[in-house]
Write a protein that binds this DNA or RNA. Sequence first.
DNA 1: CTTCAGGTACGATGCAAGTCATACCTGAAG
DNA 2: CTTCAGGTATGACTTGCATCGTACCTGAAG
Lengths: 111, 111
Amino acid sequence: MAGRNLVGPEVDALDLGAVFRALADEHRRSVMTELAADRSDSERGCNSFDLPISKQTQTHHFRVLREAGLIDEIDYGNRKGIRLRRADIEKRFPGLLTLLGSESPGGTAPR
Amino acid sequence: MAGRNLVGPEVDALDLGAVFRALADEHRRSVMTELAADRSDSERGCNSFDLPISKQTQTHHFRVLREAGLIDEIDYGNRKGIRLRRADIEKRFPGLLTLLGSESPGGTAPR
DNA sequence: CTTCAGGTACGATGCAAGTCATACCTGAAG
DNA sequence: CTTCAGGTATGACTTGCATCGTACCTGAAG
């Protein structure tokens, strides 16, 4: 039950266009924002994001994120794990994850 | 011949989703990359980017960039000026313009 | 074995977006 | 005035993409 890692692009092969296209979608961006906010980078379940879309569409979105090189998908057969590729992203596109945190304009004066 | 500035969103109203959607397109991203690379931030003509697309489509792309708040368009009547909103972008989304420079991996991590 | 929940594969659909053709506007130069 | 280049408006076309329905797979628990 080790779970094999589904393939994504290498660090040097990360494409800025694919990344922007991936982050252009509302749902995928919310997933990435959540992942970026969790500094522990622990593996998460697919349904821990409770997206308001069907599971087939979720499969699609996670695939896009993986193919853009933003997350790793670990296949356990009947379930799946999601993990942010923080180190790779920071190496190739430093500052991108920080950018995701500035989603809300009120960011200057939070609670 | 003063040229009036076409309207775009205010700094605080800049939307990350609109920005990512704008930068998802190849042609718009190439324009932004060129603008970000020129630290003098001088006003440029629309056709100084020689995009391989028709002028109607160029009009469309520049409009998207303006409505995303990334550039200013100065209308002179029979021609148009383009200027990067560097200060606003850096204030709202610090690091974004730097990110555009990392399009080619050749810089930091060659093969 | 059967059942069941999580996930995928394939196809269809509806909508957004990139592209261009035609026609028109604007200002500068003859 | 006319001409001309740069730009826009409108509409049509086409592609891409987000979404879901149906069917199927996978592993765990009865």
